[in-house]
Structures are given as C-alpha cells and as structure tokens.
Amino acid sequence: MDRSLQNTHAKLMSRDIHRLRPSPTEANCFSLGGISWVSRVETVGTIVSRDMTPNFLKFSVDDGTGCVTCIMWLNQLTSRYFNRLDQSTILLYSRAARKQAAEVRIGAVARVRGRVGLYRGVMQITATVVVTERDPNAEILHWLECVRLGRSCYRIRS
C-alpha cells in the first residue's frame, strides 16, 4: 500500500475517518480504503459538543457526513511526557493549546488537524491545531477539496 500520505494531514470527510482500519502491524497507522496508509487527518466542520476538563478539551465536529470526536490535551505543564522539553517550549505549547481551546465553542466552524486513533472502538482525532474559520464558505471549500482528493489522490477513481 501507498505510504506517501502517512506523514501528511489527509483531508477526509468524517464518514471516511470512521472507515479507517487499523494496521495489523503498525501502531497509529490506518488503512484508507485499502490503498493508502494515513496517521494524520484534517477535517472542517461545525462544533456540536464541547466538554472541558482540567487536562483536556473534548469536542465533536460535524461536517455533514458524520461527527468525529476530537481531544486537545491541556496538560503540558503537568504531564511527564513533556519533561524532555525545556521550560520555555512547554510554556509555549501550553499557551497555544489553551488559546486554541478558548476558541472552540458550539456553533463555530473549526479546522482541526491531528493524529487519528482508535479509542474504545471509535475513531477520534488528537488535535494538534484547531483554527476557527471566519470564511463562511470554508466548509463548502473543504467538501470540494475532499471530493477532488478522494477522486484524484486517495482512491484513484475515473
């Protein structure tokens, strides 16, 4: 299978994110229609739920074909995972995450980039970047791009 998409953010509709199948041999690697491997995705949709905890923000994005759950970690200052980084970098990550989390509100349209993963049998995105879209045509343009890429790049249709 093609591995050229593995290190890019594949632009996928929610329906297709839920159809990704985990690799039997590699962690955090998912099959897209049996043709390509992906590990990162980008989606654009309306935020329809939001649940803030001290350590993470969980929200759902509805792009008209499905809802996908996104997790944004906010524990940079307390997690041992970040110990290998210097204090100024950790602070930078923490501020960026909290600033992006504050923009996540129900009804807004957001562009989410991150790693896909399986949690309790359901695909979800661990978000690294969340940007609130101001262009009212952003979702339409994302749909068109997903259709174009789906036909010409991801699944090679005539």
Binding site: S60, D62, D63, G64
Partner: peptide, 12 residues
C-alpha cells in the same frame, strides 16, 4: 467518551 449518540446534520 464516545460521541456516537450525536447525529450528524445532513446538509439539505
């Protein structure tokens, strides 16, 4: 943790 109960709004 799953949000499978949230139905997607079909655009019409």
């Amino acid at each position: 943790m799953s949000n499978s109960q949230i139905e997607s709004g079909a655009p019409i």
